[in-house]
Nucleic acid binder design. Structure first.
Lengths: 147, 147
DNA sequence: TCAGTAGTTGATATCAAGTATCAATTACTG
DNA sequence: CAGTAATTGATACTTGATATCAACTACTGA
């Protein structure tokens, strides 16, 4: 009874969707991954579920807000379980690991931008590119210190 | 002698690339567009230039920093001429118009985030989704007021 | 319990964005 | 102006994602 899995199944049911074997496989796999993933990765991990179904289920989860889709320059978008209501992402530019954070200052900036910007602000997105601690540790050992 | 076009040609020459007819067509078209565009749009606008060349030229311009590539959820990335050194984008969620802005507060937030975040910050990206003034004006006339 | 029906599935075809190949062409150099 | 190295672009291909549609399955109400 993992809270995340419950959330994913609930998200689908809340949209009036049926609970099927294929959808259970997809949602539990996402929950077990506990890291950001691409649609293709999911398809590879679940050969017993059709591609179309994997893509459709992901779309439902994104539409419901249970998953967030983050666009990646040069590559397929990644998906991660939305653990925090409104949040932003950190992306390690070496290994691609995705994290989630929330900081009130970011939201406060939006208010001060309202005067700067022509039009109504309806949303925003922010990504912070980092070198994560794991990758920093690796390069400290001299394995791959070139930047 | 439009300053933007000079900048685009210079950007290519600075990378040791030759000035060719195809590249001139691409750069001047980008300069005339004065709005964000997709690679496919450019290809359609320039049937006399091969797709490969259009894509290659765009890549050179992005690598040189003269163009910025911004990822779009559900669709091909858009490109816009980088008029301001470091900046962020506004994207109208109705018509897709892309704007550019710079605000010191955004940069200041980064410093306060350094403590929050595990790892070294190497960059960031921010997009503000808006309804632009044109689209606001249109919906005021009752043409398309549903949201 | 079961039949009806509406939602779901997945193999396949297709589409769209973008890249690799490579022979022909072109820009630069001396 | 010849040599050579960069460039071009038609073509084929790759990858990510969607459309199609007949077969299947979950729910409903009797």
């Amino acid at each position: 009874m993992d809270p995340v899995e419950i959330k994913l199944i609930t998200a689908l049911e809340d949209r009036g969707l049926r609970k099927t074997a294929a959808r259970s496989l997809v949602t539990s796999r996402i929950e077990n991954a506990n890291d950001a993933f691409t649609a293709e990765q999911l398809c590879r991990d679940l050969p017993e579920v059709g591609r179309a179904t994997v893509y459709r289920t992901i779309r439902h989860l994104v539409d419901s807000g249970a998953l967030c889709k983050l666009p990646i320059l040069d590559g397929a978008p990644m998906y991660s379980v939305a653990r925090v209501e409104h949040h932003h992402h950190t992306i390690c530019s070496k290994c691609g690991a995705v994290g989630e954070f929330r900081h009130s200052t970011v939201e406060r900036v939006m208010r001060s931008l309202e005067k700067e910007i022509d039009g109504d602000i309806v949303g925003h997105r922010m990504e912070i590119f980092i070198t994560c601690n794991q990758c920093l540790a690796k390069s400290d050992t001299g394995a791959n210190s070139a930047v």
